[in-house]
C-alpha cells in the first residue's frame, strides 16, 4: 500500500508546550481524509509539518515518499490551502493566475480558469474585494492548478456561511474527481467532513486518538443500551464511553464482531456521535491530571 503521509513518532513542541505527540500514522493514497479535533488539538501543527513549514522536534514525517519541502519537485507535488485562505489583496484574480503560472512548473492554466469560472469569480476583481467564500475559491483554484498529487487544506470552510461552505466543498470534490489527487482536510465541524471524507483521523490534546476508513470505523463501533451495570467491561470489546442513569447504562464500544448479549439493545452510531464520544472520552480521562497541576 502506498502512503501519502507517513509519520513515525512525530512530535512538535513550542517551548514547553506540546503541540503534537507521538503521532504515528499511515495515510493511504487516493482518499479524502478528514482531520478532526477540537481547537488547539494539533491539527494545524500536523498539516504544517506535512507541507514542510515546520520541522519536527521528534520522530519523522514522509510525504509522497519524500521529506516535506525538500526540493522544488517535492513542493510542486503538494498543494496547500492555509487557514484563513490567504491571497494578495492588491492583485486581481487574473494576476493571481499569472503569478501561479510563473511560480509553478506543473501549472495548468485551463484547470485554473475552469475553477475560477465555475466558482463565478470575475477575473478582473481585486482579491481584497472578494467575499470570504470567493477568496477561499480563489485559494482552491491556485492550489489545484498546480496539479498536486496531494492537496492539504487547513480549516478551509470554518469562516464561511453555509452556502459558501457547500459551494467550496463541491468545488473541492470536483477538483479531486478531476485530478485524482489525494486530499487531507481539517475541520472542527464533523458535518462538513461527513459528506466528503472516506477516511478519518481524530486528534485530541496533541494525540491521534483514532484513524481509519470511515465505513470500517462505523461498522466496528456500537452503542449498547441496557440495565445499569457498574463494572463497565465487556469481553471482546473496548469500552470508549459509559454513561449511567439510575437504572440504565449506555456504552459506546469498539468491537470487531457484533455484540451478542441479549441484555443489551444494540444501536449503530453516526459519525458525528462517534467523533464527539472520542473527544469526550479524552476530556474525561485528562481532567484528573489537570486537577493535579
Amino acid at each position: 500500500m502506498t502512503a501519502v503521509v507517513r509519520a513515525q513518532g512525530l512530535g512538535k513542541r513550542y517551548g514547553r508546550r506540546r503541540a503534537l505527540s507521538e503521532c504515528t500514522v499511515d495515510i493511504p493514497a487516493g482518499r479524502v481524509v478528514g482531520l478532526v479535533g477540537p481547537n488547539g488539538a494539533g491539527k494545524t501543527t500536523l498539516l504544517r509539518l506535512a507541507v514542510g513549514q515546520l520541522t519536527p522536534t521528534t520522530g519523522s514525517i514522509e510525504v509522497l515518499g519524500g521529506r516535506p519541502a525538500a526540493d522544488a519537485a517535492q513542493l510542486s507535488r503538494v498543494g496547500y490551502v492555509a487557514q484563513s485562505t490567504p491571497v494578495y489583496s492588491g492583485l486581481t484574480v487574473e494576476e493571481h493566475l499569472m503569478l501561479g503560472d510563473r511560480l509553478n512548473p506543473r501549472w495548468d492554466m485551463r484547470i485554473a480558469r475552469d475553477r475560477i469560472e465555475s466558482a463565478g469569480l470575475d477575473s478582473r476583481q481585486r482579491a481584497g474585494r472578494l467575499s470570504g467564500g470567493q477568496r477561499a475559491q480563489l485559494a482552491l483554484a491556485l492550489a489545484v492548478a498546480k496539479r498536486p498529487d496531494l492537496l492539504i487544506l487547513d480549516e478551509p470552510v470554518s469562516a464561511l456561511d453555509p452556502l459558501a461552505r457547500r459551494e467550496f466543498l463541491s468545488g473541492l470534490m470536483e477538483s479531486a474527481a478531476d485530478t485524482g489527487a489525494s486530499v487531507v482536510v481539517s475541520s472542527h465541524v464533523v458535518g462538513d467532513l461527513e459528506r466528503i471524507c472516506d477516511y478519518l483521523m481524530i486528534l485530541v490534546a496533541s494525540r491521534v486518538r483514532l484513524a481509519g476508513d470511515i465505513d470500517e470505523l462505523l461498522a466496528s463501533h456500537h452503542q449498547l443500551i441496557g440495565p445499569r451495570r457498574d463494572p463497565t467491561t465487556l469481553p471482546g470489546a473496548e469500552v470508549i464511553t459509559a454513561r449511567h442513569t439510575e437504572r440504565q447504562t449506555t456504552l459506546l464500544v469498539r468491537a470487531q464482531r457484533p455484540v451478542d448479549d441479549p441484555a443489551w439493545t444494540v444501536a449503530e452510531i453516526g459519525l458525528e456521535d462517534l467523533v464527539l464520544a472520542y473527544m469526550k472520552a479524552d476530556a474525561a480521562s485528562l481532567s484528573p491530571m489537570e486537577v493535579l497541576r
Partner: peptide
C-alpha cells in the same frame, strides 16, 4: 458522470 454528481452533491468521488 462522477464529476457531475460530486459537484452537485459535494460528496466524495469514491462514494
Amino acid at each position: 458522470t462522477i464529476k457531475t454528481v460530486v459537484a452537485q452533491l459535494a460528496i466524495n468521488p469514491n462514494t
